[in-house]
Nucleic acid binder design. Structure first.
Lengths: 211, 211
DNA sequence: GTCTATATTTGGATAGAC
DNA sequence: GTCTATCCAAATATAGAC
């Protein structure tokens, strides 16, 4: 068996390797920010964690902000994966809307509370001078639109109504993270919040029924 | 005219002066964090702003955290003043509860959005390693209890219901600050949110009436 | 691609003179 | 009570050897 001929179209192994190392650095960065807080990320620590000197990281990322940006991007990709609905689309009944709505909010809540630092990076503006790159921001916009479609799938199409939903979702999450970290005090009130939101923003679902 | 006799009970002018300077330092710190972010507070800048060297500040505050603590304390005092209700207590009607509820949420919202950095200090955990002193934390607890009483004044006494209210209040605020700073996108939805909350958490007010 | 060496900045905090 | 003079630590980033 002869060795395969070298083909011009062969993917550049060096580039593959390089991407793998970048991913490794970003993964280590996630570990560090979970331990020391989002603002506590230090290039020294990061280098140590990944087995090289801090200065060598600059071969992969031009600055610390570029690492934050990669994390931001990765976070929104995970967000879309973690909150997408894999069940059959809801029909038009109140019960089905309720089930879909609860699933959405519980998933959002779990995604956020399971990693408060990620929540902070994605949804709060807390790193001084950090702004996502255009490419990363585009992913954030995608996620926002996916959420709109998700709400629309069970009858919430009015923009103001959608704002009300996002406010309640982030409020529950925020209170949980700030005032009962690791607990479930606000998780317990999710189902009630969803019912409340549905009655307010999709009242046609409940016509003729008693509250 | 002879000089007044020195009286032992005279308030110590030096102490008064000292408190005034401390207040001046804290005020300057508020100005700086509004410009550079909460974590961007630097003793050098603070000294410059107040007209002394950074090191001299240590005559007034033992550490930077002590300054944050004074700000935290001051913030909660302002919070209680800014959200307290000076109107006559609501009666038991739905309209009165609605008016009182709207007043509460609008005040909370205004207080928070008018100074996002203060909101960050008081309600989010974002300064690494900062924890309020016992004295300051006591004020925060007072504020929390005042809020409970405020909700109870128009019929919201169930603890879970109170959690729902605080979640919605902070959610509206949070979305406004994060996604439409300076705008009014979520402010516009406050009244609707209050009606929704009242129907859910004080349904007895609406008995016999149509939604 | 990773290293050593180093520049540069920034920022918190202390000691001691006046 | 404020200053000068420092110290110390941490952290980002660059230059150039290997």
């Amino acid at each position: 068996m002869s060795a395969p001929a070298k083909v011009a179209a062969t993917p550049d192994r060096r580039a593959v390797r390089r991407e793998a190392t970048k991913a490794e650095i970003v993964a280590a960065a996630w570990g560090l920010v979970r331990e020391h807080g989002l603002a506590g990320l230090a290039m020294r620590d990061l280098g140590e964690r990944v087995g090289m000197r801090a200065q060598s990281i600059y071969s992969y990322f031009a600055s610390k902000h570029e690492i934050y940006d990669a994390m931001f991007h990765e976070g929104y990709v995970a967000f879309m994966a973690g909150t997408a609905d894999d069940e059959d689309p809801a029909g038009g009944s109140a019960d089905e809307a309720r089930a879909t709505g609860r699933r959405l909010v519980h998933r959002f809540f779990s995604f956020c509370t399971s990693d408060p630092v990620r929540y902070q990076l994605l949804f709060q503006r807390t790193i001084p001078d950090f702004a996502p790159s255009d490419a990363s921001y585009a992913v954030a916009l995608d996620a926002y639109e996916a959420m709109q479609r998700h709400l629309a799938s069970f009858g919430v199409t009015d923009p103001h109504a959608a704002d009300l939903w996002t406010a309640v979702m982030t409020g529950l999450t925020d209170q949980q993270i700030s005032n009962d970290p690791g607990g479930d005090r606000w998780e317990r009130v999710i189902d009630r919040a969803v019912d409340m939101l549905l009655h307010e923003t999709a009242p046609h679902l409940f016509e003729g029924s008693t509250r």
